[in-house]
Design a protein around this nucleic acid. Structure first.
Length: 342
DNA sequence: ATCCAGTAGA
DNA sequence: TCTACCGGAT
């Protein structure tokens, strides 16, 4: 599941540069996610992280329960078009990397001249006819199916669910897991995803009246939904930009460009979550949505995980990692072990 | 034969 | 932190 976000470049040229202090006032209250920020930094008394996470999940669940139910559905695309851009100027706590605007423009031109697999995905195809509630559920399902799966495979799986009337929380909840499994085959990890879909549908029915959760925290409580999907769904289903959708491409490219680092260091971030937080500290919010498709396509075609095509890359002069990654990938613990056993 | 990709679970 | 998950790409 992805979306056409390459356009919308006009604002770039009008941005103040370098970014200066900008008031907090217009900024929507930043949503702290207790599941993801500083895990284990306090009061976990040596408890393993998964335990900490579970405890926090319970905490949030309690809060969610007590929240008034009608409040949840106030955020709706028709009401709250996410183009309230004037409010979106983000206050920078960290100096943006040098030349980031030129880098983005350079990547954008490369993206326009070379087709990337991600560009052939039209997420709305076939679901635009649905009612808002069903459309949102379809977006959630599509997002769950899409990870580790080619766009057209995801799309066909979604179509089969649609044809069989399973693209609603209610019907999905009643369907057999085996049915779901056979319909979504051959998307990646279909067995797991079938389990997750059924559990998700049940939760949507029992807790959200057949709709989907409308906050990142609540989305994260759904099985199979992690940070990447939660932020994607917030954007696609609710038109709300709560954070950057960071997948492996955004993670890798951001680090190669030197755009992100572990807090207070120059070391590369170690997880997409760390990358998301680091990137959000300086990247203007206007770019939060478009950066995903931009870097995913770039990562698929040029800044590839293995043997990046630095010679073809027009912004290599700005890239601290250009031509530095050599043929053989760093040996993993697995390969080391394999070699040992030989 | 190994890598890839987002999440869960240990 | 590390591995399993599934099948396609490299």
């Amino acid at each position: 599941m992805s979306f056409s976000l390459l356009r919308n470049t006009a604002h770039l040229s009008s941005l103040p540069f370098p970014i200066r202090f900008i008031s907090f006032t217009a900024m929507p209250k930043a949503r702290k996610n207790p599941l993801l920020l500083n895990p284990g930094s306090e009061d976990d008394g040596g408890v393993p992280k998964n335990r900490v996470r579970k405890r926090r999940v319970e905490m949030i669940a309690k809060e969610v329960k007590t929240e008034s139910p009608d409040k949840k559905f106030l955020r709706h695309p028709e009401i709250e078009d996410f183009a309230n851009k004037s409010d979106n100027v983000y206050s920078q706590s960290i100096q943006p990397p040098a030349n980031w605007e030129r880098v983005i423009e350079g990547i954008r031109s490369m993206r326009l001249s070379e087709h990337a697999p991600v560009d052939s995905i039209d997420p709305d195809e076939g679901v635009t006819s649905l009612q808002p509630k069903e459309r949102r559920f379809a977006v959630l399902v599509g997002s769950l199916l899409s990870s580790q799966t080619k766009g057209h495979v995801t799309h066909e799986a979604n179509q089969r669910l649609l044809e069989n009337g399973l693209l609603s929380a209610d019907t999905m909840d009643k369907a057999h897991e085996a049915t779901i499994k056979s319909l979504i085959y051959p998307v990646g990890f279909y067995t797991r995803k079938a389990q997750h879909l059924k559990q998700v549908a049940k939760i949507c029915v029992s807790k959200y009246d057949g709709d989907i959760p409308s906050t990142v925290d609540e989305l994260l409580l759904l099985p199979g939904v992690g940070p990447k999907i939660a932020h994607l769904v917030m954007i696609m289903a609710w038109n709300q930009v709560e954070g950057i959708c960071v997948d492996t491409h955004v993670h890798r490219v951001s680090n190669r460009l030197g755009w992100v680092s572990r807090p207070g260091t120059k070391q590369a971030t170690r997880s997409p979550e760390e990358t998301r937080v680091s990137l959000q500290q300086w990247l203007p919010k206007e770019e939060w949505v478009s950066i995903n498709l931009l870097l995913v396509g770039f990562g698929q075609t040029i800044c590839t995980p293995l043997r990046p095509r630095c010679a073809k890359c027009t912004i290599s002069k700005f890239c601290p990692s250009a031509f530095k990654e050599i043929s053989s990938p760093a040996s993993t613990s697995k390969t080391r072990r394999a070699k040992k056993e030989l």
